[in-house]
């Protein structure tokens, strides 16, 4: 009678290896989800603006939203904008412009930075640097005034661009129409001091804020006592005090309310954790 020796070692090694792969994938997904929740220093006002002093009616307040902030994973770029309140360019910039949008019900006009594609305005692209201009509007929902504003943006007549579509962000251009600033007092401070500047490892662009989010990362999977684990780490230090401030953001402190981001991100990742582990360990794959 023959004896069969069963050696489970290759199977165990396979499971360990696959589990490590699954855990690392899940950790990478968790990083992305956590980054979505991570707080980013807000340098723009985000409040309402009066849009025109020339108007015959009471100007409607418009809410400015800056696309880069959180939703698309971009922080606030430096050196974005270029037009003063009359629509004239004060300085020529090239390179790193910020994407700016005006959104309100029924309208979305978006100016996107250049160097990517196209120019705005045949009349004087050089004066404006290069940037892409895109205009969206939903038919039937805009007033003539709005049409004018947005069609000008679309047509690239730069001198007629609504000054509020482009907000200067450096030096004296910090002030916009009506003397109101496009950035918060805190934002102005941050821009001036450069304290919160952060060069994104993804695209190498310097932005104001976003360090905490940019430094969230996952460690490689390790096997210890039969448990495969990977860590998702947020260990950003305040450059002045050396204090780890993600903890203050996560839990809050006496002075500041909490802005949890690790735990909500992990909550969002629960399904992915199970899925990635299951896929990695799926039976039927060759050893």
């Amino acid at each position: 009678m023959a004896e069969y020796a069963f050696n489970p070692e290759p199977i165990i090694q396979y499971i360990e290896r696959q589990a490590a792969i699954g855990v690392e994938r899940a950790a990478a997904i968790a990083v992305v989800n956590i980054q979505k929740h991570a707080p980013v220093r807000k340098i723009f006002r985000g409040t309402t603006y009066r849009t025109s002093k020339r108007g015959f009616r009471e100007p409607k307040p418009r809410r400015l939203t800056f696309e880069g902030d959180d939703r698309r994973g971009h922080a606030n770029s430096l050196f974005p904008i270029l037009v003063n309140r009359t629509g004239r360019v004060k300085t020529t910039f090239t390179g790193d412009f910020r994407r700016v949008s005006i959104s309100r019900p029924g309208h979305l006009a978006r100016l996107q930075t250049g160097a990517h594609e196209g120019t705005i305005g045949e009349s004087g692209p050089a004066a404006f640097g290069r940037f892409k201009a895109t205009s969206y509007s939903r038919e039937g929902s805009e007033s003539p005034k709005d049409l004018a504003v947005f069609s000008q943006v679309k047509g690239g007549k730069v001198r007629k661009v609504n000054p509020l579509t482009l907000h200067p962000l450096s030096g004296e251009n910090l002030r916009v129409q009506g003397g109101k600033r496009a950035v918060t007092a805190r934002g102005k401070f941050e821009i001036r001091t450069g304290r919160a500047n952060f060069r994104s490892p993804d695209d190498g662009v310097v932005r104001v804020g976003g360090r905490l989010r940019g430094e969230i990362h996952a460690t490689g999977a390790v096997m210890r006592d039969g448990i495969v684990s990977a860590l998702v780490v947020s260990a950003t230090k305040d450059p002045e005090t050396g204090r780890l401030y993600p903890k203050d953001q996560e839990f809050g402190n006496r002075h500041n309310p909490p802005h949890p981001f690790m735990r909500p991100g992990l909550h969002d990742s629960r399904g992915a954790l199970r899925r990635e582990l299951k896929n990695a360990l799926r039976i039927g794959k060759p050893l």
Binding site: G252, P257, P258, P260, R263, P264, H267, D268
Partner: peptide, 9 residues
């Protein structure tokens, strides 16, 4: 005492 919602999936 302070309280805050962390997540509500």
């Amino acid at each position: 005492l302070t309280y805050s919602l962390v997540a509500g999936p």
